[in-house]
């Protein structure tokens, strides 16, 4: 599904490398987690995969089902099935949440040569998905993320994911700023989306999110590389001993 090979990335404006040869493959139906200390390049990886400006790929490749992600515009990556749940979802005053979601869904469908969803069907679809995430109708009517609490913003990200039904979901520090209850809601939303044909890449600093979203594979990232890969027990090791031991081992 998602295949990253020897990916090297630097900032456009600086020569300092951020990713220094990342190799990672996410298979359909699997949940991969990337953990690592601050500044290890986790968020950069998510931005480069989804096509945010400001980065330059100096070597390597990233493909989704064989298609070259790095050659595509962000909107085409989305239409191809990639989704990034933002660490800091953006507020867009004056644009209703529903308008935004419907525009996005229909743009993706159009790009794939599918029929647009009618207003009625769309309303039904969103209401059903929103219910499981405990997102009320009032929140759907409000402008995108404006006046939303931290938890509401993250739930809104998961709602978008549920409506857009991407093949490959990347969650960038979705647990940041969430209390325990909000985290459980978000995790339940993600778990409900787990499917044999869908892959997940969950980026997190702490182990606690992985109590709720059980990963199949855990990677530790440091200084722009994946330094260790293991099962869920690797996350527990980080929780217990911090990153120090692992980094010392691999240094």
């Amino acid at each position: 599904m998602l295949k990253i090979q020897n990916l090297h990335v630097k900032l456009e404006d600086e020569d300092k490398p951020i990713l220094k040869g990342v190799d990672l493959t996410v298979e359909p139906g699997r949940v991969h987690a990337i953990m690592g200390p601050n500044g290890s390049g986790k968020s950069t990886l998510s931005y480069v995969l989804s096509g945010r400006g400001g980065y330059e790929v100096t070597a390597g490749s990233a493909t989704l089902d064989g298609a070259d992600l790095l050659a595509m515009e962000p909107e085409d990556r989305a239409a191809a099935g990639l989704f990034l749940a933002f660490q800091y979802p953006v507020e867009i005053p004056g644009v209703g949440n529903m308008t935004f979601l419907r525009t996005a869904l229909n743009a993706q469908r159009k790009a794939r040569g599918e029929e647009e969803v009618s207003a009625g069907d769309f309303l039904k679809l969103v209401r059903e998905k929103a219910k499981t995430l405990k997102i009320d109708a009032e929140m759907l009517k409000r402008p995108v993320n404006v006046g939303f609490s931290g938890g509401e913003k993250k739930r809104n990200e998961i709602l978008q994911m549920a409506v857009l039904e991407p093949a490959m979901c990347i969650l960038d520090e979705t647990d940041s700023g969430l209390d325990v209850d909000a985290m459980r809601l978000v995790a339940d939303g993600v778990n409900a989306l787990r499917a044999p044909d869908r892959g997940f890449l969950v980026i997190t600093h702490y182990q606690r999110l992985l109590d709720h979203i059980r990963p199949d594979v855990v990677h530790i990232m440091a200084q722009g590389r994946i330094v260790r890969t293991g099962g869920p027990e690797l996350a527990l090791e980080v929780e217990k001993n911090g990153y120090g031991d692992i980094l010392a081992e691999t240094a």
């Binding site: 515009e73 989305a78 990034l84």
Partner: peptide, 23 residues
């Protein structure tokens, strides 16, 4: 970028942000 990452093409995303500005 947020809008485009959801699949909204650049021109449509720009239009939405202009509407947002005028709201």
């Amino acid at each position: 970028f947020y809008l485009r990452s959801r699949g909204v093409p650049r021109s449509e995303a720009t239009a939405l942000l202009v509407l947002s500005f005028l709201a």
